[in-house]
């Protein structure tokens, strides 16, 4: 099928960017969206032009590195799908597709479709862990955890840190990402000792990075490729309030 792409090109964070239009006459419906970019880049290089820079690595929907904003939606039109798992059979012959990078001031553009998401790492470094040194652990079965709690913690922990929640939010809020980690650890007995401190530190770090506030529109939940629930934001808000009262 014939596909027309309007792709955001930007040399680096200091120069302004613009959309370039490319036409691909023969796209297979079995291709993934990123494989279509491979084919386009192959052609650009053979023509002596600069290839399009985009982030990607595992190409199986789990590393969280791919990050395209496709036709106004983070990771494209399918729910629960990362860009690398989006296949061209979901588009039609003759379609024009607009591809942009994640847009959020906390995620500065590096080049073309690549952005800097290191703000997420810094939020985790502020408190997204349980302080247990290697060798300190007790036997894994010494603390039973109700299956329901373990499953809920798993659902929160399934976050891949891709940043689609931030990219899609009109406020560029990182609440879904941060709350997923806060919630995972708050649901487990091992996470209790640091529970109050953790939520405060992580929220503080989140604010410092310049993410926007949450206005509960729920856009993040809709676009999250891993279906992380808005419930986690509610849980984090409650914990945050409690931690302030405890103080």
């Amino acid at each position: 099928m014939k596909i027309t792409l309007k792709v955001w090109r930007q040399k680096n964070g200091k120069t302004p960017g613009n959309f370039n239009t490319y036409t691909l006459p023969d796209v297979s419906e079995d291709m993934s969206f990123l494989e279509m970019f491979d084919v386009l880049n192959d052609e650009l290089i053979r023509k002596g032009e600069d290839s399009i820079a985009f982030d990607h690595d595992c190409r199986e929907g789990i590393c969280g590195m791919c990050s395209m904003y496709i036709n106004g939606r983070a990771h494209g039109p399918l729910t629960g799908t990362t860009t690398c798992q989006l296949h061209m059979r979901h588009f039609k012959d003759g379609d024009t597709i607009v591809v942009e990078p994640w847009r959020a001031s906390a995620f500065p553009i590096i080049k073309d479709l690549m952005v800097d998401r290191s703000a997420f790492d810094r939020v985790i470094q502020a408190g997204g862990f349980i302080s247990v040194n290697t060798g300190n652990a007790v036997d894994a079965n010494s603390i039973p955890i109700p299956k329901e709690d373990a499953d809920k913690a798993f659902d929160a922990a399934a976050c891949i840190g891709c940043g689609a929640c931030v990219a899609t939010c009109k406020n560029a809020s990182a609440m879904l990402f941060v709350s997923a980690k806060v919630s995972q650890l708050a649901l487990l007995p091992q996470g209790q000792p640091e529970r109050n401190m953790r939520v405060k530190k992580m929220v503080e770090a989140m604010d410092e990075e310049g993410f926007g506030n949450c206005t509960n529109t729920g856009a993040c939940e809709v676009e999250c490729p891993k279906g992380i629930s808005l419930d986690h934001i509610a849980r984090m808000n409650r914990d945050y309030l409690v931690s302030n009262i405890v103080d």
Binding site: F129, I130, V132, T134, G135, N136, A137, V138, D139, A140, N141, I143, P144, I145, P146, K147, A150, D151, A153, F154, A157, Q184, L185, L188, Q190, G191
Partner: peptide
């Protein structure tokens, strides 16, 4: 010891209804 360490870090392994791994 690896399993012990990971559980202590909050790794949500699959569990039985009795709460054990």
């Amino acid at each position: 010891a690896i399993i012990d360490q990971c559980v202590a870090q909050g790794v949500p392994f699959a569990r039985e209804y009795g709460g054990l791994l």
